[in-house]
Amino acid sequence: MKIVITGDTHIPGRGSKLPERLTAECRDADLIIHTGDFRSPAVLDELEQFAEVCGVYGNIDGEDIQARVPRRQLFEAGGLRIGLVHGHGEKKTTEQRAVEAFAEDDVDVIVFGHSHIPVVKYFKGMMLLNPGSPTDKRKLPYYSFIVLTIGEVVKADLVLFGDKG
């Protein structure tokens, strides 16, 4: 199973469209996960043309997005229990808020966004994934997203690229 994980697209704003590097990976995805801050429902519409989308809303998403995706999701994909949340809030780090959001749940993977800082690591037996952003790298050198492959092995590949065109 191939899952493309993205988020913090901020379109329109930080970008005018999804980068080709991202959409090329979406073409054969079995599932797309978006960590929130779509900004426009057009982003969700475009991603849904490629595959099923599991998404959550972020702190900049309006009622149009909130009507279509929840604040937090817990679902199964490829035999893994996945918790999905944007990660915004007060106090603590984005990562700490994401972990706390699923403290009472049995999850294998926690996917979050908000910080625009890519993360691929394990914490207390859970895989933590933040795809960064394909359109707003802030002070980082690269735009990014993650390709999660679930098969005989589970592999999370962080995709870094320099041109969001």
Results as ranks from 00 to 15, higher is better:
residue 71 R to W: 11
residue 102 F to V: 00
residue 102 F to Q: 00
residue 48 E to R: 10
residue 71 R to A: 11
residue 3 I to F: 07
residue 8 D to A: 04
residue 21 R to H: 12
residue 138 R to I: 07
residue 121 K to Q: 09
residue 93 T to W: 14
residue 54 C to E: 11
residue 13 G to W: 04
residue 156 A to Y: 00
residue 44 L to S: 11
residue 78 G to E: 00
residue 149 T to A: 08
residue 71 R to V: 06
residue 141 P to M: 05
residue 18 L to V: 02
residue 63 E to Q: 11
residue 19 P to K: 10
residue 42 A to G: 12
residue 36 G to Y: 08
residue 11 I to P: 06
residue 69 V to T: 03
residue 112 F to D: 03
residue 103 A to R: 14
residue 143 Y to F: 09
residue 93 T to M: 14
residue 94 T to A: 15
residue 70 P to D: 07
residue 86 H to I: 02
residue 145 F to C: 08
residue 12 P to L: 05
residue 20 E to H: 13
residue 163 D to M: 05
residue 66 Q to T: 03
residue 46 E to Q: 15
residue 87 G to Y: 11
residue 12 P to N: 07
residue 112 F to H: 08
residue 98 A to I: 01
residue 115 S to E: 04
residue 47 L to Y: 14
residue 21 R to C: 09
residue 95 E to F: 04
residue 7 G to W: 10
residue 2 K to C: 11
residue 118 P to Q: 12
residue 75 F to A: 04
residue 111 V to E: 06
residue 43 V to K: 05
residue 31 L to H: 02
residue 146 I to N: 04
residue 46 E to H: 14
residue 74 L to S: 07
residue 28 D to Y: 06
residue 44 L to G: 12
residue 71 R to N: 11
residue 77 A to H: 01
residue 37 D to V: 08
residue 26 C to M: 04
residue 70 P to W: 07
residue 132 G to R: 00
residue 131 P to H: 15
residue 90 E to V: 11
residue 153 V to E: 15
residue 118 P to T: 02
residue 89 G to H: 01
residue 59 N to D: 14
residue 3 I to S: 10
residue 15 G to K: 07
residue 11 I to G: 15
residue 73 Q to S: 07
residue 97 R to P: 03
residue 2 K to Q: 14
residue 96 Q to K: 14
residue 16 S to Q: 13
residue 112 F to K: 01
residue 132 G to P: 01
residue 83 G to S: 03
residue 16 S to W: 10
residue 92 K to E: 15
residue 110 I to Y: 03
residue 36 G to I: 02
residue 28 D to I: 01
residue 163 D to Q: 10
residue 16 S to A: 10
residue 58 G to V: 11
residue 22 L to V: 02
residue 145 F to W: 02
residue 145 F to G: 02
residue 36 G to P: 05
residue 41 P to H: 06
residue 118 P to M: 10
residue 153 V to T: 14
residue 33 I to S: 08
